[in-house]
Design a binder for these strands. Structure first.
Length: 488
RNA sequence: GGCGGCUUGGCCAAGUGGUAAGGCGACGGCCUGCAAAGCCGUUAUUCUCCGGUUCAAAUCCGGAAGCCGCCUCCA
């Protein structure tokens, strides 16, 4: 509300109530939806990690003009449309390793809450019903209108782009309830059969689950006006107290430096991105910039993030092979009992405590990986046996802490959910499938090269390596033998 | 027209008063038969420009330029 960073103090000690505007389920979700969801997923995870009992509500708008239009276009039932896209949304978010919110309410399941809310607004003189038309919220009845978006209603040229409904007392008044046309989804109400306007559902549902006043409200930047402004007006006009303590708005995802738009035809859907990239690459990318800034989706950036994730898993793999047990914390919490976190985790905590600065958190991950690699390098001479004994007990302990810290950080960002073995095997399989390469053939060539190297026939060895290189395969001669991987 | 934001090395990107994190790339070195990976070092005397405040500014204030978003459905 201040437009600045403020110290976070929840309304109720130890508890956080958070409401985030979810999607209108009329179409496939795009990368921009993914950013919002992933950003708030990390915020949710971090608040929980910080010891708060978090009630996280994210709604589905499942009744709306766009859904009705889509239904008319396809000849399907609106409910069928919304169900289809809710399911799709869930599948994609699961793939992105997004935790389910505490509650995911749907507008259509809260019609009576909405009607009651509107009735109370009318009673208080904050809303009015125009016979044969909509119920409108009267912005003149609410003094603070425009305080979130810093707009003065008088300055806004209402109706500059669309015709103003002549029934409105003030051109800026917005719809709370609108009558249904024949065939449209409708619910009985004191104002006839109809359906809710867009903004009212969030006021009604947040009130239902979080109360008249709650801690955090989030959503995309574009929702600031009019959506969130209108929510404030509705809720504060009715309850007379501050609606939300802290507003969090995430920035947009651009595609090759252009805004996603229908006219440019550059809508980038989550499912398409998931085909191209590992889910954790997508998450890491979405978190590589501060959540408030715009982020640009392009091939170059994605390639960079691939290297990033490879580097982190690469270290875990190295540590694992050197005898430091590495298991995924998300899958195996119990095995981490008894290990305490170290300096790296403390640094990461500072990063995240400062307005959820995931970009800085990722830098801390790099520092941590470097620290670990350094230790492994220092004992490399002894690593030929690649056994636990080659590392001193002290080193193992340090490395254990480093790996534990990394797992904890990964668990907040929603990455490192695989073991390094699973990760690299998965990558290899994806590469093989993409390129239609037979792994047996690769293994055969690698073996031949190993033989050639043994007999010091380096010319032949290099020839084989060049051949594999042309198939985008890179060899790594390590203490445990030669391994290979795809360049991306 | 109104409102808000952004401008940091070749690229990506942290950094809201104390003397420029991190990543990618590039170059040099260690390691290697040669590589790869990893590690070490180098790569912005300077943060779009011009003024001002301050002992001290990328960070605060004023002005200019460029870019972007919102004001209509939009994450």
């Amino acid at each position: 509300m201040t437009g600045k960073k403020d110290l976070f103090v929840p309304l109720e000690p130890g508890k956080v109530s958070m409401y985030v505007c979810g999607p209108t389920v009329y179409d496939t979700s795009h990368i921009g939806h993914a950013r919002s969801v992933v950003v708030f997923d990390v915020i949710f995870r971090w608040l929980r990690e910080s010891g708060y009992d978090v009630c996280y509500v994210r709604n589905f708008t499942d009744v709306d003009d766009k859904i009705i239009n889509r239904a008319n276009e396809t000849g399907k039932d609106p409910l069928e449309i919304s169900e289809k896209y809710i399911k799709e949304f869930h599948n994609e978010m699961d793939a992105l390793n997004v935790l389910r919110p505490t509650i995911e309410p749907k507008a259509t399941e809260h019609i009576s809450d909405i009607i009651q809310f509107i009735e109370m607004l009318i009673e208080k003189g904050r809303a009015y019903h125009v016979e044969g038309s909509d119920v409108f919220f009267s912005i003149d009845s609410f003094e603070g209108y425009g305080k979130l978006s810093h707009r003065n209603p008088d300055d806004m040229i209402a109706g500059a782009r669309i015709a103003v409904d002549q029934n409105k007392r003030n051109p800026m008044d917005f719809t709370l309830w609108k009558p249904a046309k024949p065939g449209e989804p409708a619910w009985e109400s004191p104002w006839g059969a109809g359906r809710p306007g867009w903004h009212i559902e969030c006021s009604a549902m947040s009130n239902r689950y979080l109360g008249q006043s709650f801690d955090i409200h989030g959503g995309g930047k574009d929702l600031i006006f009019p959506h969130h402004e209108n929510e404030i007006a509705q809720s504060e006009a009715l309850f007379g107290k501050q609606f939300v303590q802290y507003w969090i708005h995430n920035g947009f995802v651009d595609i090759n430096n252009e805004k996603m738009s229908k006219s440019l035809g550059n809508f980038t859907m989550i499912k398409d991105v998931l085909v191209r990239y590992h889910p954790e690459v997508i998450r890491l990318f979405l978190l590589s910039k501060h959540y408030r800034s715009p982020i640009d989706y392009n091939e170059n950036s994605m390639d960079e993030v691939i290297s990033t994730l490879d580097k982190i898993y690469g270290f875990l793999d190295r540590a694992n092979k050197a005898g430091v047990p590495v298991v995924s914390i998300t899958k195996n919490k119990a095995s981490f009992t008894g290990i305490s976190s170290g300096d790296s985790w403390a640094a990461f905590k500072d990063d995240m405590d400062d307005d959820f600065n995931s970009a800085r958190g990722i830098a801390t991950i790099f520092d941590t990986v470097k620290k670990g690699n350094k230790i492994l390098d220092a004992v490399r001479d002894y690593s030929e046996k690649s056994s636990v004994e080659s590392l001193s007990a002290e080193n193992i302990k340090v490395l254990e802490t480093i790996c534990f810290d990394l797992q904890k950080m990964g668990n907040i960002l929603g990455i490192l959910s695989q073991t390094p073995g699973e990760y690299f095997t998965g990558k290899k399989e994806a590469g093989l499938a993409d390129r239609a390469i037979d792994p047996k053939m690769v293994d055969q060539l690698v073996m031949e090269r190993t033989e050639a190297r043994k007999s010091r026939n380096f010319a032949k060895a290099d020839e084989i390596r060049a051949m594999l290189d042309s198939m985008n395969i890179i060899l790594e001669d390590g203490p445990g033998g030669t391994t290979w991987k795809f360049t991306h």
